[in-house]
Amino acid sequence: MIIKQAVMRGSNNAFKVILDLIRYIVPAVFVLKVLEHSGWLVRIADFFEPYMNYIGLPGEGALIIMMGQVTLYSAVAAMAVINITLKQLTIVSAFVAIFHSFVLESAVISKAGGNGFMIIGIRFVAAILVCFILNILIPGV
């Protein structure tokens, strides 16, 4: 009985989450594919290459982080489009997990009574520090 209820409610929730995912992932993949086909992806990647190399990412990592500022799911979509190695994937996932959708979240934090700017600053610094350490700790390319 309990299991039946759990399966029903769980799949109901899963259906809602997957609809949400479709809403975010399809436009994000479309934008990235347009960038890729028009050649802008390479140009943006080249611009960010020197900064991204500090935390062991290729220039394309900047695009994943930018997509992560829209929603967390669009960052997932960006990871599916851009070809990067397992180590770089771990690093960029850690970055996006700590620092994502900062416009929306700083507004929420400010509404809740916190200092939005400070929280976002701390999260950004923490993300860079964690990625820097991960880049040293994880072996391989």
Partner: peptide, 25 residues
């Protein structure tokens, strides 16, 4: 776009459905 979104969403479905059922339990 269709190809990549479909494969991504399929992979995530395989993870999400058992996870959410487990959490409900």
């Amino acid at each position: 776009t269709f190809e990549v979104s479909f494969s991504t969403i399929f992979k995530m479905t395989v993870i999400i459905v058992p996870l959410l059922i487990g959490i409900e339990y």
